[in-house]
Design a protein around this nucleic acid. Structure first.
Length: 213
DNA sequence: CGAATGATATACT
DNA sequence: GTATATCATTCGA
């Protein structure tokens, strides 16, 4: 099972199956989203997330209990990926949370490079690291090599997973605000379900020393 | 600011 | 089965 590489920091299933998706979205900040695709290992520190709170949330694909082939993974128990294509181009990566039948999910919107930077640059067609490398859900997914075929993949496997690198985020370094691009969600559009870490503060953390070179 | 882009959901025949 | 409106975005002026 464990082939020498220590997987002890991988988040346990219990992290995802908690009932409060907003809490999970907040806790995901500072965690490392990892992927091993085509044999290439890439890791990203999560700095921005959005919570989508199940059938009662008009901004969610599962609003009103809509269950379709695409949204099926959201209805499973937490701890798997939900990836879908948006605007015909962008593969958006979400973490499914809560228990089976409760379609809650967290969209990962942005991050900072931690490992496999050359591979991320290659996937993004960039020559050097800049602010836009992992800014935005479409860009982040692309840098990690995540595509819709990974929807439904377990986060306890060896393709996509999330690690705890013991980065602490103090409460005042987190900014909450309304979600992006969800104007159609009426009253739910104003909910403060978007969480952003102040990048400069996070950069002071030791873990990023390696990433900044 | 505005165009590009294609899968998906929904409402028809 | 076929059609059309919609979309949790990005990039380049």
């Amino acid at each position: 099972m464990n082939t020498g590489r220590n997987a002890s920091s991988k988040l346990p299933a219990a992290f995802y199956t908690r009932g409060d998706v907003v809490e999970v979205a907040r806790d995901l900040l500072g965690k490392a989203l990892c992927s091993r695709i085509d044999g290439r290992l890439t890791k990203v520190i999560i700095t921005e997330t959005e919570a989508y709170a199940g059938i009662a949330d008009r901004a969610s694909h599962a609003y009103g209990g809509r269950r379709t082939p695409r949204t099926e993974p959201m209805f499973a128990a937490g701890g798997i990926a939900y990836v879908y294509l948006c605007y015909g181009i962008h593969h958006l990566f979400n973490v499914v949370t809560s228990s089976a039948g409760n379609p809650h999910a967290v969209l990962v919107r942005a991050g900072l490079p931690l490992l496999g930077i050359d591979d991320m640059l290659a996937r993004r067609g960039k020559a050097s690291v800049d602010k836009s490398l992992l800014a935005g859900p479409g860009s982040l997914s692309r840098a990690l090599g995540i595509q819709t075929g990974l929807s439904g993949t377990s986060l306890s496997g060896d393709i996509v997973w999330i690690e705890d690198h013991d980065i602490r985020i103090s409460g005042d370094a987190i900014v909450a605000g309304p979600r992006v691009g969800v104007d159609y969600a009426l009253e739910d559009a104003a909910l403060p379900y978007r969480f952003i870490v102040d990048g400069d503060r996070l950069a002071r953390q030791e873990t990023l020393a390696a990433a900044r070179t």
